[in-house]
Design a protein around this nucleic acid. Structure first.
Lengths: 331, 331
DNA sequence: ATGAAAGCGCTAACAA
DNA sequence: TTGTTAGCGCTTTCAT
């Protein structure tokens, strides 16, 4: 920058002025400066700028599983919105491990990110820490218990209830659920929604029809195997996330249980492969990209907050039922 | 930091010394300083450190499509390796668009990342620019034409050849390929490998059996539809990536073409859903995580290069054939 | 409209 | 072993 100033025969303050564009600079000097920049192949140093300004224009995003398309679609939405506002995203993966999460947050904080988007590893993620550090943050998808601050999530309870009701409406009575991890909010809320719909229809929730698949492929696979082996197997299964549905479908194929003829399946989360599976999967979809955009939008609002900023609390999104070929009335 | 120094009754240089750990500090002062840090809830500012040191401990990773599990698995490998070495990853998505790629690179460069991992949007990505800026970089998966520098990639030609040979070995003669985009290196190399294997077996490569699916689901779907509608359809199809395979399977299910009975399918890339599809998919898999780790390792080597650093050139990985249920001898 | 100078939080060379 | 001090490259008052 000094070199540019010298070559253009001006002070570095003037160079800075044309860079930021906030101060008026005469057309002549501006021209000379821009040419000097080109001649020297000068590029401003964002690090120095960050130090001076106290903000980095980077936000951190913490995700339990980068290989799950649900989270990457969310990220895509968030990144789009960030880019639109001149911000960059630093991504951290936690594998759902609280200690990795802790380290990743430290790293993000050390890098002085302007804010953090966070889907927590477990319901007891200590968000007070973020508050104490005075860094803006927004939770998405997986929220800590009792958290009242800014967050975006699906109305998981309503979604699960609707999925279950759809099965009931088809005529099913023996309905099983492969529930997700009860250590994170979506896992809990979806099981609640299932119970709610069953009770509303005066249907019993039998223990043997409630399995826990831990949101993993293998969990879904094992749970399905157990369900299929039951003396009186269910005629329909509600699987609480994409990965477990994968395991479930595999188990059914292996055990030669025709879907939907012998057993209907409704999955949670909707993805590219959902519609391309055979049978094409009926699912409860989430507006992932929109949720990602919204979360980032809320975070940026918080970062640029003015005097009269009030926390928007938790924003709930609605799910969307995609009826395809894996569900049918029971025989 | 000044506050910590004051509270501990030492100079900031001493505080810095305990922080970096490079200089010896007496146990007593160290204790006092650490306590002061805790008391003040002090956290070092990485931005200031970066400015002073001239390095940020951040590397940029540029990816064409975050929602493709192939790239996210690569990223997982890269991130693991980076974390092991105390580095963080800043992720950029380009959607395979050269102009977005250009902007993302600028952002990364402005943030003074220590290095860049890059899978290019098209074969003519101007990597001279990176060279001019003197930032270490390593290409992965998609390489520019004629690039001789550090890179990691699958031996796509050999992999495609092996996949095709497997089909030939099964007894197939009418073999089609759904090729990927010919604007990026893997798309080109895989088509070459296919041709190579066909010629080696003295089999004709008929124009009508060569379709281009652009690495997208819809491309795979359309190509498959055309292939199925042929007067003399192929008895086996080689699909050049995961997304196109999805579209292909969907088309076959819709058109009621039984797989593998009427048509065998071998896909490229192996994923969670490959083994859980029905039929379970035969695939050519890539060691994605290992490739990600290796790319990052090469980048870090380059960042910490010494006098006698020599570019390792392009490192080729071998693919792995996963024989499952979507391939069988022709009827 | 332009420039001089202070300082963001840190590290390291040098002095003590 | 510890302290003093000069910057890293930038933005921003405050003069001019």
């Amino acid at each position: 920058m000094r070199d540019v100033a010298r070559l253009a025969g001006v002070s570095i303050a003037t160079v800075s002025a044309v860079l930021t564009g906030k101060k008026p600079v005469s057309a002549e000097l501006r021209g000379r400066i821009e040419e000097a920049m080109r001649a020297l192949d000068y590029h401003p140093d964002h690090v120095a700028r960050s130090l001076k300004m106290g903000s980095t224009n980077v936000v951190g995003m913490v995700i339990p599983d980068v290989t799950n398309p649900f989270f990457t679609e969310l990220m895509q939405g968030a990144e789009e919105e960030a880019r639109r506002c001149g911000m960059s995203v630093m991504l951290s993966n936690t594998d759902g491990d609280a200690s990795i999460e802790h380290r990743q947050l430290n790293t993000l904080l050390a890098h002085r990110v302007d804010g953090i988007l966070l889907s927590c590893a477990d319901s007891f993620t200590p968000w007070e820490r973020l508050e104490r550090r005075k860094v803006p943050f927004v939770f998405f998808d997986r929220l800590p218990v009792g958290f009242q601050g800014a967050a975006v999530a699906l109305d998981n309870r309503a979604a699960a209830s609707e999925a279950t009701s759809y099965l009931i409406g088809l005529g099913h009575r023996r309905i099983a659920i492969i529930a997700g991890s009860q250590k994170v909010s979506p896992g809990i809320a979806r099981l609640e929604g299932f119970r709610e719909a069953m009770e509303a229809a005066h249907l019993p929730v039998r223990t043997q029809y409630v399995r826990y698949g831990d949101f993993s492929i293998d969990g879904g696979y094992q749970s399905a195997l157990e369900l299929i082996a039951l003396p009186s197997p269910p005629t329909a299964i509600f699987s609480c996330n994409n990965k477990m549905t994968l395991g479930l479908m595999r188990a059914m194929a292996e055990q030669k249980v025709p879907c939907p003829d012998a057993m209907s399946v409704i999955g949670f989360d909707d993805f590219e492969w959902s519609a391309n599976f055979s049978p094409r999967l009926t699912t409860m979809g989430q507006p992932t990209r929109a949720m990602g955009r919204k979360a980032m939008e809320m975070l940026l609002d918080q970062i640029n907050r003015t005097e009269d900023y009030v926390s928007p609390g938790t924003i709930m999104f609605d799910s969307q039922l995609n009826v395809r070929d894996s569900t049918a009335p029971p025989k």
